[in-house]
Design a protein around this nucleic acid. Structure first.
Length: 753
RNA sequence: GGGAGAUUAGCUCAGUUGGUAGAGCAACUCGUUUACACCGAGAAGGUCACAGGUUCGAGUCCUGUAUCUCCCACCA
């Protein structure tokens, strides 16, 4: 007669077992596909791989991470149990701007020094130290979620291997003419002191004033602007070619005294201008507006730079404004306009202010020499003439990559259509340095704009530095998304021809948030199609945002986050995992509350108690019957379960995790515990030896058979449900498995599904 | 300005291919010499936003309306 283990007699205490279970899994080596056990004596032939979207090294685990980890862990554990050769590869992201600015702030606060006081080398040393420390935190927290990641393959977006991948990719694109250096009106973040890409801009709605005015009394056309201070940089006024009001002035150049500044303004005709808007005339400021830059290109206009990298007016802005902040300069210009009777109208409007996603700084458009990826340029791609846009489109169009939910495929295409060349250089020190060198003598390195004069410098682009010591490397680093774009294959050893790369690329699933479909998903497709001529992943599963009960995003700045670590502490990891994934479908946001997590803590306990009960009521069972030896009614219960199980399997195969979770929860609690156990309870009780001698031998035998069958059914159903629940709630199931597994069984995490 | 999504019980949300409306939480009644009060049984709660249409049959498909949310965009 078996004794019920003592541990089972107390309520389930997640806290006391989780750390140890995780350690046991890690030590088993089964997170690593190279160590996975055979399946029915056969090696695992089918590969299944997910590369973890790397969290920022600086971060602490938030609910978004938790959701991502849970979904991926469910998929991986499910496939591992099904017998696939599973790889889930972890990594962290150096997140250049975010990380550097945290360290800069710290240094400025503690030592009162700027990055320039420290110098590049010293700052990088400090940032590296910080990143290393920080990385350990996020890794520890990731483990607390139960994530079955292969830590032996841990990658970092800025380590030596990834750097080689970046240099190799850059060089190839450079040689194909897809990366070029050029002078463009770019997005400048004065706070972060760097350029940023279009995708890193967040528009903020703000109240503003639209001023309508003339440059000077003798200038015939009035213009409108919310930013009159930029107008000292105007070199033209554009009107619609069909606009009768202004036809007579087209082609004429006027010299005006405007805000203490002499400006030369040519009147030009351009179809871009909307006759109905404002005065129907547009002051063209080529240096500080992208639209105006394009007009400049079309009409070959000169430009005047009046705003500098610190969002202050330059010397060229004229004596009245030079040195002032743009906001001060605006007031100054308005004052000047009023004094000179040139202000015709003021009108309140709401305007979209571009701000930098990472720093919140107000983004200025400034012309600068930068590195770009040409997305519309034709090149020879494995024998075909293609553009990078073509490659991105094709992967989805021909079904190599499936995006879930599929409505995002349309979103993806819209984005590609509107895509401009991608500015990839950053004036941040922490990141992959542009692998380009210039001949020393021919280059005068100065802050900012003097580079413009150096566009004909001798340039070397290579994976390794050029020979000789008269070369100087480009100061800039690359957009962090450039290295992230290579993530699915740089983590597997590319550019080396590795076994991992052959086995696991294209990866099976990319699971990430829909908010980074452009930043990341599209660029991974671009990079992988371009460099490997294959899609980086067969399926993209996009999850939604985790929000609070007021439907707000969880964010550090709002301070409204549910701290997953606190929830784990209070209710156990399994409870948090269930709460995150129940009812959550692809692409939908999910609301999380503490109550919900609490409810699933009860579920873990229910499993615990049911296990104890089943063990108690079956401890006199000599030999467990197999399924086809059970009584007919018991076989029917078993059939009911296997039907449910195949539904759950199908749900998982088709990424309906929320529904799978709900089904297993419902069956275990409301069918197995509430009904089947209660039924079996009676049958087992009736089968107990009776003291009275009233029952005939025949009846006694029948009762005995039914009892043994009932006991066997309970054990079989419990075991199978524990297996099925494992991907969702790995801890409590693995713990319980210790007590219900048969002698030949291995860890639950590798038990056949 | 363009695009996408949402609207189902008091709250938060599920609802595959059209086939008798579901769960958790909350509230209500009853039960418990007991695997589990981190429990069980029961009842209550819904014109599935609104208006049309397709269909034997619509929460689900189509058209329109309303409200909310999100994304994209160089209207100065």
């Amino acid at each position: 007669m078996k004794q019920v283990p003592e541990q089972l007699l107390k309520p389930f205490d997640a806290k006391s077992v989780e750390a140890e279970l995780y350690k046991m899994w890690e030590e088993s080596g089964y997170f690593n596909p190279d160590n996975l056990p055979l399946v029915n004596g056969q090696p695992r032939t089918e590969n299944y791989s997910i590369i973890l979207p790397p969290p920022n090294v600086t971060g602490t685990l938030h609910c978004g991470h938790a959701l991502m980890l849970v979904i991926q862990d469910i998929l991986i554990r499910f496939k591992r149990m099904q017998g696939f050769n599973t790889l889930w590869l972890p990594g962290t992201d150096h997140a250049s701007i975010a990380t550097q600015s945290i360290v800069e702030k710290k240094i400025s606060k503690e030592e009162g020094k700027s990055r320039h006081d420290l110098g590049r080398e010293e700052l990088l040393k400090r940032v590296d130290e910080f990143a290393k420390q920080s990385q350990e935190t996020i890794i520890k927290q990731t483990k607390a979620m139960g994530a079955s990641l292969d830590w032996s393959r841990l990658a970092f977006t800025l380590d030596e291997k990834r750097n080689l991948a970046v240099r190799t990719a850059f060089k190839k694109m450079y040689d194909d003419g897809l990366i070029y250096r050029g002078l463009r009106a770019i997005n400048w973040d004065p706070k972060g002191q760097t350029t940023i890409s279009d995708d890193e801009i967040v528009s903020e709605e703000k109240e503003g004033v639209m001023y309508t005015f003339k440059y000077s009394a003798d200038f015939p056309i009035a213009i409108s602007s919310t930013r009159p201070e930029t107008k000292v940089g105007d070199t033209a006024v554009a009107v619609h070619p069909d606009d009768e009001r202004y036809k007579e002035f087209i082609g004429k150049t006027f010299t005006c005294d405007f805000a203490g500044n002499k400006i030369e303004v040519k009147v030009i005709a351009d179809h871009h201008v909307d006759k109905e808007f404002g005065t129907g005339a547009l002051g063209v400021t080529p240096a500080h507006s992208k639209a105006d830059w394009e007009i400049k290109e079309r009409h070959d206009l000169p430009m005047r730079i009046v705003i500098n990298e610190y969002a202050k007016m330059t010397e060229d802005a004229g004596t009245l404004l030079a040195g002032k902040k743009v906001t001060e300069a605006r007031e100054e210009v308005v004052k000047w306009l009023k004094e000179n009777n040139l202000l015709i109208g003021e009108e309140k409007t709401t305007q979209q202010i571009p701000t930098a996603e990472r720093t919140g700084g107000l983004v200025e458009t400034i012309p600068k020499m930068q590195w770009f990826v040409a997305v519309n340029k034709k090149f020879n791609h494995f024998g075909n003439e293609k553009t990078l846009k073509d490659l991105m489109r094709e992967a989805v169009d021909n079904g190599e990559t499936k995006i879930l939910p599929d409505r995002f495929e349309r979103v993806y295409h819209h984005w590609i259509n509107d895509l401009h060349d991608w500015c990839i250089s950053r004036q941040i020190w922490y990141g992959h340095r542009v692998p380009v060198w210039y001949k020393k003598e021919s280059r005068i390195k100065d802050e900012g704009l003097s580079e413009m004069q150096n566009s004909d410098t001798e340039v070397y682009c290579g994976i390794n530095p050029p020979e000789g010591n008269d070369w100087i490397q480009d100061e800039d680093t690359l957009d962090t998304w450039f290295s992230s774009a290579l993530w699915t294959f740089s983590t597997l050893g590319w550019p080396n021809d590795t076994i991992d790369l052959k086995k696991f690329h294209p990866t099976t699933v990319m699971e990430t948030g829909y908010d980074i479909i452009f930043f990341w998903v599209a660029r991974m497709i671009l990079a992988s199609k371009y460099l490997l001529n294959e899609t980086p992943f067969k399926t993209v599963y996009l999850h939604g945002l985790v929000r609070d009960m007021q439907n707000r995003k969880f964010s550090k700045t709002l301070g409204n986050g549910i701290d997953p670590l606190e929830m784990i502490e209070k209710y156990g990891t399994d409870a948090l995992r269930m709460a995150l994934v129940v009812g959550n479908g692809a692409g939908n946001d999910t609301k999380l509350s503490e109550d919900k997590i609490k409810a699933y803590k009860h579920f873990a306990n229910k499993i615990w108690n049911a296990t104890r009960f089943v063990l108690e009521r079956t401890n006199d069972l000599e030999k467990e019957l197999s399924v086809n030896e059970l009584t007919e009614s018991h076989q029917n219960y078993y059939k009911e379960w296997t039907d449910k199980k195949s539904e759950i399997t199908k749900d998982l195969e088709e990424f309906r995790l929320g529904q799978a979770t709900e089904k297993i929860y419902d069956f275990f609690w409301h069918r197995f515990a509430d009904v089947i156990i209660e039924e079996m309870k009676k049958e087992i009780l009736q089968g107990a030896k009776s003291d009275e001698d009233v029952r005939s031998q025949q009846v006694e035998d029948a009762k005995q058979i039914s009892k043994i069958s009932a006991q066997s059914l309970l054990l079989i159903l419990l075991r199978e449900q524990i297996i099925t629940m494992h991907p969702f709630i790995p801890f409590v199931t693995e713990e319980v498995w210790k007590y219900i597994k048969r002698d030949k069984d291995d860890l639950l995490m590798v038990t056949k599904w």
